[in-house]
Write a protein that binds this DNA or RNA. Structure first.
Length: 590
RNA sequence: GGACCUGUGGUGCAGUUUGGAGUGCACGCCGGCCUGUCAAGCCGGAGGUCGCGGGUUCAAAUCCCGUCAGGUCCGCCA
């Protein structure tokens, strides 16, 4: 990462030290220096010589002690010595400071330490619960130090980009009002109002819209967001978003602002600036990649096979949609592997998965498959032509409803062609024109795909009442290498459109007033057209760090069950604390 | 709510298929030796509720049932 010079004092000098361990080099030869840090390794050679590898956040330097030294791993030391070139033949090319060492060292023990529960070293894999229980030790490891500092660099770049683009940083409340909508919220019971509660915000969505009514014009915030939903590798209870909103803008303005910020962040994190961010419509992303967050680092696009099997006699392929993907060199996959893929497809909702190994006979390529005998020669030829598959390839075909066929193949595409997070390049993507509604609720009303303040696509306004499922929206997602990095939308600022959407959603006027009253009330006093976005910082940094899990870029994350092995949170409240809040536990149901 | 995988000295593993004494490996730890190592080397040593509970059996780390914890995924995440 190329951090600005000003971000770190070159020397790191303090009252206790003159230099940093990892920065010492040939230029310092001859200087008498004091460095502070932790003992990474002690190597004693009898009573006349000992080596100490001293580690701080910049790296490790070898200290030579003329005698024995009673220190152990992870002792905290101040070591004073003279920087000198290493003797002939003892240079360590694997160590950045390996040209030099600290000679004739005087060692002061600032604090002894018990043996750590695991070695502070990137070379060992340690159980994650053990790491989290002793996170303060885990974070000493170079990998974690690098991740947290990378994150700081990303934040710095994002903040600079927002400032430069005229955005004003505003903090919004963590204690907010409960809303019966959307993600489960964390509840904070009120002591002063027993029986009443605040909730922690899932996002500052409504607050930032109020800031637009308030005339802030351009707002941003590094917003902590909290959602009481099940955790995953890319989801924690609490996460951080670069949250932003702007007035008198349209979709293109927002995309430009966000793109500049994340491309700056990418440049700061990786040293290279990715090219302009391309756009796909949601419909196109689904058609071509079977997902609304396609990984553009590889091809394997879905092939449309409806025309090939339009009049097929094979009942399994007589479906509204028939699509396939080509797995290059996939013909060598074993039968058991193919069975697993089939089970996987069924688990995702498909009725089945048809596979075809492409063989290379004398008369041209042929198909080897349990279902090949059900297909006519024309269909087999058509399948090969439509997919472009060649000998040695594997073709996977799903026939089903359009959405399902696409998503099943999209999942298989990712599983079979997906690359590790740590592999470049960085392929940002905008997915635009999301549907306004997604599915229907118990009463048959459409369900808001994003949130109920999302502006319908102007070309689809007429369909709001007649064909809500076909209404596109001014909602958009930012995608990076198959990860959803964030989403945003143009908001509804006009009462008449808002009323029509509420009606479509089946939200009565009094219900809307009770749920969003303060927002709708504010909108009566002059709401500017506005739009916004939120970028998930944890995911962005995880990708730049090449980490599969955002836990690796969060200082103190929780396990999948929401447990913190270090603090043992969550813990039962003391009876007195419960009483103060006017709470009484229900009897356990076991 | 569901599927799959995992649980064995401080750490990482093997052992579980086919039941037979807590057996083994690497790292770490403790003690000793060692004047140029750097994942030091050599010698010696300590360290275990095989996640937990129950069952089968003469005998269970190993088989069966249950349960807890962790991970990945589905659901969920307006």
């Amino acid at each position: 990462m190329t951090a600005p010079e000003s971000s770190r004092p070159p020397s790191g000098a303090t009252a206790l030290r003159t230099h940093l361990c990892g920065t010492l080099g040939p230029d310092d030869v001859g200087a008498r220096v004091t460095v502070c840090g932790w003992v990474a390794k002690r190597r004693e050679h009898g009573e006349h010589l000992a080596f100490l590898d001293l580690r701080d956040h910049t790296g490790v330097v070898q200290c030579v002690v003329p005698g024995t030294v009673d220190v152990r791993s992870e002792y905290v030391l101040a070591v004073t010595g003279e920087v000198r070139r290493r003797p002939e033949g003892t240079v360590n090319p694997d160590l950045p400071t390996g040209d030099v060492e600290l000679g004739d060292c005087a060692v002061e023990v600032l604090n002894p330490a018990e043996p750590p529960p695991f070695v502070v070293d990137d070379r060992v894999e340690v159980d994650e619960v053990v790491r989290l229980r002793h996170r303060y030790v885990d974070l000493r490891r170079p990998r974690m130090q690098a991740n947290l500092r990378l994150r700081a660099g990303v934040n710095r770049a994002l903040r600079a980009a927002m400032d430069r683009q005229g955005f004003v940083e505003v903090e919004t409340p963590l204690l907010w009002a409960p809303t019966p909508e959307g993600a489960r919220e964390f509840t904070v019971p009120s002591r002063l109002h027993p029986g009443a509660a605040y909730v922690l915000p899932q996002s500052p969505q409504l607050a930032k819209q109020l800031l637009m009514v308030a005339g802030l014009d351009r707002y941003y915030q590094f917003a902590r967001c909290l959602r009481d939903e099940d955790l995953r590798a890319d989801r924690q209870f609490e996460f951080t978003q670069l949250d932003l909103e702007a007035s008198f803008v349209d979709q293109d303005d927002v995309l430009a602002v966000v793109a500049e910020a994340v491309l700056d962040a990418a440049e700061a994190a990786t040293g290279e600036r990715p090219g302009p961010v391309p756009r796909l419509t949601w419909a196109e992303a689904l058609d071509r990649y079977g997902t609304d967050k396609p990984d553009l680092r590889f091809g394997m696009e879905l092939c449309e096979l409806g025309a090939v099997f339009a009049r097929t006699g094979f009942r399994a392929f007589a479906a509204p949609c028939v699509k396939g993907i080509v797995v290059g060199e996939g013909a060598s996959l074993t039968r058991s592997r193919l069975d697993v893929l089939t089970e996987r497809a069924q688990a995702l909702g498909a009725k089945g998965l048809a596979w075809f190994r492409v063989t290379g006979g004398e008369g041209g390529p042929g198909l080897e498959s349990p279902v090949a005998k059900f297909l006519s020669d024309e269909e087999q030829t058509g399948l090969l032509q439509a997919t472009g598959a060649g000998p040695g390839d594997l073709v996977l075909v799903v026939a089903d409803e359009h959405r399902l066929a696409c998503t099943v193949l999209g999942a298989l595409r990712t599983e079979l062609g997906g690359r590790p997070v740590s592999e470049g390049p960085y392929r940002f993507l905008w997915v635009v024109d999301f549907p306004l509604f997604d599915g229907v609720d118990d009463q048959g009303h459409p369900v808001a795909a994003h949130h109920p303040f999302t502006m319908p696509h102007p070309d689809d306004l007429d369909l709001l009442e007649s064909d809500p499922a076909a209404v596109r929206s001014r909602a958009y997602d930012l995608v990076l290498n198959g990860w959803e990095l964030g989403s945003g939308s143009v908001r509804v600022h006009r009462a008449d459109i808002q009323r029509r959407i509420f009606t479509a959603l089946g939200i009565a006027e009094d219900e809307a007033a009770s749920r969003f009253g303060f927002l709708l009330g504010a909108f009566r006093y002059g709401a500017p057209p506005h739009a916004g976005f939120a970028v998930g910082i944890d995911r962005l940094v995880a990708i730049f760090a090449g980490e599969d899990s955002i836990r690796e870029v969060i200082a103190f994350p929780k396990t999948q069950s929401g447990w913190d092995p270090m603090t043992d949170a969550p813990k039962p409240l003391a009876p007195g604390a419960l009483a103060d809040l006017g709470l009484k536990p229900l009897p356990r149901r076991d």
